[in-house]
Design a binder for these strands. Structure first.
Length: 938
RNA sequence: GCGAAAGUGGCGGAAUUGGCAGACGCGCUGGACUUAGGAUCCAGUCCCGCAAGGGGUGGGGGUUCAACUCCCCCCUUUCGCACCA
């Protein structure tokens, strides 16, 4: 009985494809290229659940479709295999992360292969492969060898004029003053410009665990494991200077075919803002005038000097309303400003802030806290002395770490000023509606008097007021112009200038971990074994720097990470000097930052990739993955890509031309009436309801994100075992649009399985003993007109749907096709051929088998995609609804090419229509050709 | 709080430019075949109503001959960011 048997047939074809290397991509071809990439998986111990292959299914269908349309397709797969879980497992069990990783990869490879995806498996690699690590480290050294010349002007491949480019460090101009200080000074100077540089940055240090924790491992200032206290301590770390690429990252979003929300998230993440920097004098008030006049002569200096504090503001037009100033608690000038009588409380406050974690600080954000330093600054626009405070609502890492506070026009400043009874001044007049909304009857005159009592600060645009000195006045001037006017006055006076700031921070690239790529840097040691502060890159010929073999992955108790224990590995001697290896490793992002490039040329031993292959394959034409990577992975990759572009290693400005985010797949969590989670194994499904297998209690189901803790994870093996891979793949897509979040339903899978069985029976004779064509499939028979119409309409619709990744509707169309042809007693072979080709990208195994049964000997992978003939799609007559006042009242059948007047007459003549228009006067008749007729009566 | 996306039958969802709301599938109901059905086939299934008819795409308003679709206000859900001066 040749019934549809997915298990046997899927294994057969997977073996066939593997043996014939059916999907290997040609690096040279006369065909147009298409590079389709999935975000590669982290090989976790749990393996894949049904959510993972959603994107993979979509890209695979698209690739198979485009192969049939004549494209040379690159579709690779690999593993993002460094990362914390394997290391954590090693700490707990002593199993080397390498072992765990290999085991997990083997499992995930098995799962992926089971689904019959058309990857070019000859290009497979893991980021942990020494061969790959070598080139990841090579790129790090390229970053180390690059500085950003913000003045460099060039023309991009699109012909646009651009400013700012990464250049070799050897081309960095060295000021004579540095050169004269000798070799060490020169090297330190260069180091301060490199895209990879070292800096002190706070880490979450947990003394009890003796290790550094990631932000997500810290909860309420305590470790997630063990609930031990965590403190923020500064540590020397490697940083990547992504901020210098902020404008490039922003501007080039325009050329990308990405979902607008993702672009928007990236823009917000970069967070560009325009404003001004202003210096506030903090010296003796008697010398303010001389400071002002000296500034007038010198102009605005690069550094504010010890006599001033520099603030950044987006609202320089409100300078006259600054009634106090706030420094971040970590600001270097705090000590100098603090008077003796305030020192104790200020120090205490600073320590308290240092102890609170980032998360706690954000959590306690509602209530403002701060401390007066006792010091004063002078507002340069009006010579007013204003108190200087410190407060944790000012961040040291943004802007200049200091603000001028304008409580009249900034909500945060207003809250702070209220709490500490600092005066509030109105310097921007709001529109009348705003005033009315704040307090009925309020006008601009009274506004200035009651401003401190209003529920909100007015932060919008308005007209300047109470804002003038002897040289400049903003009174009556709209905000936008006022900003310009005051900024040019500040510049002329040497106390300020226009400035651009970003929320984006430099990328903290160090991890105090074992299971990551070692950072290939050597620290020079002086004769008594202490670091001299000078570094050098590991020679390119020495790459890769591999991890030392270790048996004990337990924390060292020191913040420098597990590699600190590998004392032999650390010590190296080069050119007669002693060096210590860097013991920090790279973050997991590193490997995934450039894997798409390695796929172009994965076995190259001499270079990361060959320039010809890069030029042939790049950019990635379609990149599919989860929206959880909307910001970081995609931003980091783009950054690396731009550096590689600037240094001439890649030919495109952007790596991923088109991006699609697949939606999350949800699952149903079942709970008892007491809210206890019931795992799937203990549930009996009956009549569409769920019952506890033991207690028979009916369970309430709720659609939620799949997670281990909810016990609702559906491993991908479950549907594959029960229904086969084709059904699983098809259902992944049939659930709904690729981009939307949608719930997995085992019953829904059943429906797809039925469809494939019907398709099988449409072509195969199940009652025969041998595998043979259904007798209703007729060779050489010409399709009837109706059959042709159904076939060609299906081809047209499915083709369109495949192009736009609308697989859910493509599947619906094919279902309709099967429903129709199952009812046909003569099924022309040609129609069946076309059907199998159309279904093949989505359900390749069953289609290869059907293709064979239909009499073909080769794989259908490279068969031509069916083309529809417009003459069959056109119908000779059309049925039009006739509406009376917008309601459908009748139907008429007219020739498809009937003229408007004929259609109108036919509609008016229709007997049902007549009933409604009898006695009424016809105001208007609207005929929409091939759509409908609407008769307006009144 | 800010930003974005989305609200359509019992459920997943479909619907070029505004033009027959509910394709396709699940579930459900009835029937056929059958020792049996969780196989298969046939019919039905937005709501109210026996019917004629009426109502209906989160709610309210508007534009239009015509609104799921466009405009305004509101509600709900999801996601992202979160003291960024």
């Amino acid at each position: 009985m040749p019934v549809y048997d997915p298990r046997a047939l899927e294994a057969k074809w997977q073996e066939y494809w593997e043996r014939h290397k059916t999907f290997s991509a040609e690096d040279k071809s006369s065909k147009p290229k298409l590079y389709v990439l999935d975000m590669f998986p982290y090989p976790s111990g749990e393996g894949l659940h049904v959510g993972h292959p959603e994107g993979y299914s979509a890209t695979d269908m698209y690739c198979r479709f485009q192969r049939m349309r004549g494209y040379n397709v690159l579709h690779p797969m690999g593993y993002d295999a460094f990362g914390l879980p394997a290391e954590q497992y090693a700490i707990e069990t002593g199993t080397h992360p390498q072992v765990t990783t290999e085991r997990n990869i083997a499992n995930i490879r098995r799962q992926i292969k089971q689904l019959g995806f058309s990857y070019d498996w000859d290009r497979e690699f893991a980021t942990t492969d020494p061969d790959y690590v070598r080139w990841t480290q090579w790129i790090f050294l390229l970053l180390f060898d690059t500085w950003f010349d913000s003045e460099f002007e060039w023309v991009d491949p699109a012909g646009r004029k651009r400013k700012g480019k990464g250049r070799p460090i050897s081309e960095l101009p060295i000021p004579q003053s540095i050169r004269s200080q000798g070799e060490a000074a020169l090297r330190l100077y260069q180091d301060s410009f490199r895209l990879a540089y070292q800096a002190e940055s706070p880490v979450n240090w947990c003394p009890a665990l003796g290790t550094v924790l990631a932000d997500e491992e810290v909860i309420d200032g305590r470790s997630e494991r063990g609930n031990h206290p965590v403190q923020r301590i500064p540590l020397r770390q490697w940083m990547l200077r992504i901020t210098v690429y902020a404008d490039r990252l922003l501007e080039d979003l325009d050329i990308l075919d990405w979902p607008e929300p993702i672009k928007e998230m990236q823009r917000n993440w970069v967070g560009r803002s325009e404003g001004a920097e202003v210096d506030f004098f903090i010296g003796e008030s008697a010398s303010f005038d001389s400071w002002i006049s000296s500034r007038k002569k010198s102009g605005f200096p690069e550094e504010p000097g010890p006599e001033a504090i520099r603030v950044y503001t987006t609202r320089p037009d409100t300078l006259f309303g600054a009634t106090y100033m706030v420094l971040a608690p970590e600001h270097p000038q705090v000590d100098r400003l603090t008077t003796d009588e305030h020192r104790a409380e200020v120090d205490d406050y600073r320590q308290r802030v240092a102890r609170t974690s980032e998360e706690d600080r954000i959590a306690g954000r509602g209530e403002k806290s701060g401390m007066f330093t006792g010091g004063y600054a002078t507002n340069p626009v009006n010579g007013e002395r204003i108190p200087v405070w410190i407060a944790d609502y000012v961040l040291i890492s943004y802007g200049t770490g200091a603000i001028m506070a304008v409580p009249g026009h900034d909500q945060r400043d207003l809250e702070f000023a209220r709490k500490f009874r600092i005066p509030v001044r109105a310097v921007v007049a709001p529109a009348a509606e705003w005033l009315e909304r704040m307090q009925p009857g309020l006008n601009v005159e009274t506004y200035a008097r009651v401003i401190a009592e209003l529920p909100e600060a007015f932060a919008g645009d308005g007209l300047g007021m109470q804002s003038s000195n002897a040289e400049v006045s903003l009174d009556g001037i709209p905000t936008t112009q006022a900003k310009g006017r005051i900024t040019s006055w500040l510049l002329k006076s040497g106390i300020g200038r226009g400035a651009v700031k970003y929320k984006l921070r430099d990328w903290l690239f160090s991890r105090q971990r074992y299971w990551g790529e070692p950072i290939p840097i050597l620290h020079e040691l002086d004769p008594d074994g202490k670091p001299s502060g000078l570094t050098r890159a590991v020679g390119l010929d020495e790459l890769p720097v591999l991890l030392p073999e270790m048996e004990d992955f337990k924390p060292t108790g020191r913040p420098d990470g597990p590699l600190g224990k590998a004392t032999e590995w650390i010590r190296v001697r080069r050119d007669g000097r002693d060096f210590a290896r860097e013991t920090n490793t790279m973050p997991q992002w590193a490997g995934s930052c450039w894997y798409y490039l390695r796929f172009c040329d994965p076995r190259n031993e001499k270079e990361p990739w060959s320039p010809e292959k890069e030029r042939y394959w790049m950019p990635v034409d379609l990149y599919v993955g989860g929206a959880e990577h909307a910001v970081l992975h995609l931003l980091y990759s783009r950054f690396w890509h731009k550096v590689l572009f600037d240094r001439g290693y890649v030919s495109t400005m952007e790596p991923f031309q088109k991006l699609v985010n697949q939606g999350m797949i949800l699952s149903v969590t079942y709970r008892t009436s007491e809210g206890r989670i019931v795992p799937y194994r203990q549930i009996r499904f009956e009549e569409g309801k769920a019952f506890h297998a033991e207690t028979d209690e009916e369970l309430a189901g709720e659609t939620e994100k799949m997670s281990k803790s909810r016990g609702n994870v559906i491993p991908v093996d479950v549907p594959i075992e029960r229904y086969g891979s084709d059904t699983t793949r098809l259902y992944e897509m049939f659930m709904g649009p690729l981009e939307s979040t949608k719930p997995w339903s085992m019953q829904g899978v059943e429906g797809i399985s039925r469809f494939l069985n019907r398709a099988w029976r449409m072509i195969v004779d199940e009652s025969a003993d041998a595998l043979q064509l259904n007798p209703k499939v007729v060779k050489g028979a010409d399709p009837t007109e109706e059959q042709n119409r159904v076939l060609h309409k299906t081809i047209k619709a499915v083709t369109q749907d495949m192009e736009t990744l609308s697989f859910n509707t493509a599947i619906s169309r094919l279902m309709e096709f099967v429903n129709y042809f199952t009812g046909q007693d003569s099924r022309p072979l040609s129609c069946m051929n076309s059907f199998v080709l159309m279904l093949a990208p989505m359900a390749p195994h069953i289609c290869e088998e059907l293709w064979q049964i239909l009499g073909h000997s080769e794989s259908l992978t490279y068969e031509s995609w069916p083309v529809f003939d417009p003459k069959y799609v056109e119908e000779s007559t059309v049925e039009l609804p006739v509406q009376i006042n917008g309601k459908v009242r009748g139907r008429i059948t007219v020739p498809a090419n009937a003229g408007q007047e004929d259609v109108k007459q036919a509609a008016l003549a229709d007997s049902k229509v007549q009933r409604y228009i009898e006695g009424a006067s016809i105001r208007k008749v609207i005929v929409v050709p091939r759509k409908l007729v609407n008769i307006v009566v009144g």
